[in-house]
Amino acid sequence: MKNNFQAVVVDNKDSNFSVQTKQLGLEDLSAGEVVIKVHYSGVNYKDGLASTPDGKIVRSYPHIPGIDLAGIVVSSEDSRFKEGDSVIATSYEIGVSHSGGYSEYARIPADWIVPLPAGLSLKEAMIIGTAGFTAALSVQRLQDNGLKPENGPVLVTGATGGVGSFGVAMLSKLGFEVVASSGKKEAADYLISIGASNVIGREEVYNGKIKALDKQVWAGAVDPVGGESLAAIISKIVYGGSVAVSGLTGGGAVPTSVFPFILRGVNLLGIDSVYCQMEIRQKLWGRIATDLKPEELSSFIYKEVSLQQLPEELPKILEGGITGRIIVAVE
């Protein structure tokens, strides 16, 4: 490997916040048993927060962000991995308190690494990334709790975001009737193209009023939004149905009641992809490479950028105008 390499570094020295590409060495990376030549990464909401001085994500400076990465092992002190292995590393402390994927090289603890499954390229793995993995985990949990296509339509909120888009595509591939909810009317054609059977506005999910029990509409839901919208969804889930919640862009407070749970047997499923157990993580990446793999993954790419272009792109993920994924070509 190179003695020096490029990485995007976030710093806040003497309250002078900066995000720029710098030359680093292996000694600048966090500890770990496996050194990876990074080929691709992606841009997630957390990465956007890391690029702002008040994002409250980065634990200490200077720091290399990037919560996702895929690449080739160049050295390993762990017998599970060897030089030349193709691998994925997402979540845990990567890009938060551990140096992340916005670097030509990354040093990662072996316990955080997943072998790249057959059926996925390194680039495809990062098109999917944490967003797609979170969607896959949501789908898996819904299926574990009895969701089947014959049960009825499934709602996906925040459908143009990363989790939402992959939720739509994965559920559709499994044969579900998917109702995609979005505040972007212009994105309807995109959502239909990735598998939505129907596209509705946010107001059809939550119109400002929440009933303890509303008309039963959806057999299940993938919800990365949370807040009052989630309370409205819970009141409209059919008997025995489930909601998989993974985010809080709509707020952290959920003003619901016990009635949907005790009178309709509704399940509220918490989805955490950060510390998901490795056994489940490997199983899900296997499904993502096979029965959950969306068709035409390239259609999910909003933009592909280099490390040098990344500092100016990172804040855009926080502005809410992106449909699809920003992919970082590191190699």
Rank of each mutant, 00 (worst) to 15 (best):
F166V: 13
S138N: 09
K215R: 11
T130S: 12
Y302G: 10
N207G: 12
P65H: 13
Q308A: 15
V266A: 09
Y275G: 03
I234L: 15
G101W: 15
V305K: 04
G146W: 05
G100V: 04
T290M: 05
T134F: 02
M170N: 05
R202E: 04
G220I: 03
C276P: 04
L122A: 06
L292K: 03
V328D: 13
I317P: 00
V222W: 07
S91W: 14
S60E: 14
L155E: 04
A106H: 05
G132D: 06
D111M: 12
K211N: 15
M170L: 08
S257D: 01
V266R: 10
G220A: 14
K211P: 04
G42K: 01
I233Q: 07
G42H: 03
I72L: 11
F5Y: 08
G183D: 09
G100K: 06
G226T: 12
A329P: 00
N151G: 04
S242E: 08
F166I: 12
A196D: 07
I36F: 00
D291Q: 03
L191T: 02
V43M: 06
L284Y: 03
T21C: 15
R281T: 06
L292H: 01
V58L: 05
N267E: 03
G66E: 15
T130D: 06
L24E: 01
G48W: 13
A244W: 06
T134M: 03
G247N: 05
V178I: 06
V199Q: 09
S273T: 11
G226P: 08
L307K: 12
A232K: 12
L155H: 00
T249D: 01
K283E: 10
V222M: 02
D54I: 11
G129P: 02
K56I: 12
N12S: 11
F5W: 07
I57W: 11
T130C: 08
E150M: 08
I72G: 09
V154F: 02
F259S: 10
I200L: 10
G71A: 11
S193L: 06
V156S: 00
P260A: 08
V163T: 06
F176C: 06
A196P: 10
A219Y: 15
H39E: 15
S41P: 01
L213P: 08
N267T: 06
N44L: 04
F133G: 04
S60A: 14
K184R: 14
D28W: 01
E304N: 01
A110N: 12
G240E: 11
S79P: 00
V139W: 00
I113T: 07
G220Q: 04
